[in-house]
Simulated scan of single mutants.
Amino acid sequence: MVEEMEDTVAILMATYNGAKYIEEQIQSIINQTYKNWQLFIRDDGSSDETLKIIKNFTNIDHRIHKITDNLGNLGPCLNFNELIKTHLEYKYIMFADQDDVWLENKIMISVNKIKNLENFNYNIPVLVYSNYYISNSSLKYKTIVYKNLNQKHLSERLLVHSWVMGCTSIINSSLAHIAVDIPKEAENHDNWLAILAAAIGEIGYVKETTMIHRIHEDNVTKNNNTNTLVNRLDRVRKMFLFGLLEKRKLMQKLNIRLTETEFEQPLVIKKYQKLLDLKGIHSILYARNNHFYAFTKKRTFLFYIQLFFSKKRGLENAKR
């Protein structure tokens, strides 16, 4: 009985006006071959039928819970942060988007992989992420995302640009305790968790696809990656104006977190901090020699250009 409780997986779902697809997603969780899970849903102030659908599911399955608090609308990152903070007692935590669909073995595959990496050492912060499909709103024309994913120099590359999706991930309690209270400079919980796991713990990848990530006009992924020329130019402008400064601030907060949790500063963090303090051709050469490059060649090129024109700034020059 004790072992059964230890292996319970807490699934955290942040919702907002997700009535169109959430029923299909929750049903895919119910259909999992791994049955020892608890689904905790925190709604961020939906005005559609989302809350009604959630209530219907809580009535038919005791493992599904709606979180009620007085915190109001938090936005996706703080919503997930609140969910992590209030479920730290669970050995494993997974994250669910309201509009995706999980394949039936997703939890089983994820738990088996993370247990293998822990190897009974539960003090090691561990994150496991998996391959997945992307699809349109009707779930037609599925495409595998990672066809030939390079697993070399993960720590360095994830500090430059994280490609790890939270909705494909499982983390253990050790990582959750360090990650709670996500800095705003981390952009999202996906990025923060991946950086922590890669820098001070273990990060594992499952090549098998475990879910379908639905791309549609209303979801966060679509909104953050809109391919209009105006949005592309705005993202590049923000990257060059604030990108490295935000990364420096994030490294400061990361080091404070490591000190608080008695983790030593890893070598990769020291190298990355040195990189951020360099400029011109020296920064690019240092980045290349120490394997700091992004997920794609385009992202790597933009990062190098960003480094080249960067000047060392103190935190007093933070964006106003």
Rank of each mutant, 00 (worst) to 15 (best):
M1H: 09
E3K: 14
D7L: 10
Y16K: 13
G18P: 02
K20N: 13
S28N: 06
Q32F: 10
Y34M: 02
N36H: 10
F40V: 06
D43M: 00
S47F: 02
D48R: 09
E49G: 11
T50F: 12
K55P: 00
R63N: 08
I67Y: 05
N73D: 07
C77Q: 13
L78Y: 12
K85I: 02
Y92G: 02
A96R: 00
D97F: 02
D99H: 06
L103H: 10
M108E: 10
K113C: 09
N123W: 02
N131T: 08
Y133M: 08
S135Y: 00
L139Y: 07
L139K: 07
T143L: 07
I144R: 10
K147Q: 13
N148G: 02
L154S: 01
V160M: 00
H161L: 04
W163V: 08
M165A: 10
C167R: 03
N188E: 06
A199M: 05
T209A: 06
I215Y: 00
K222F: 14
N224L: 12
N225Y: 13
T228K: 09
D234V: 04
R237L: 15
R237M: 07
K238Y: 05
M239E: 05
K249F: 01
L250H: 03
M251H: 08
N255K: 15
I256C: 04
L267Q: 12
D277I: 07
L278C: 07
K279L: 01
N289K: 14
N289I: 07
N290P: 05
R299K: 12
F301Q: 14
Y304L: 02
I305H: 07
F308T: 00
G314H: 08
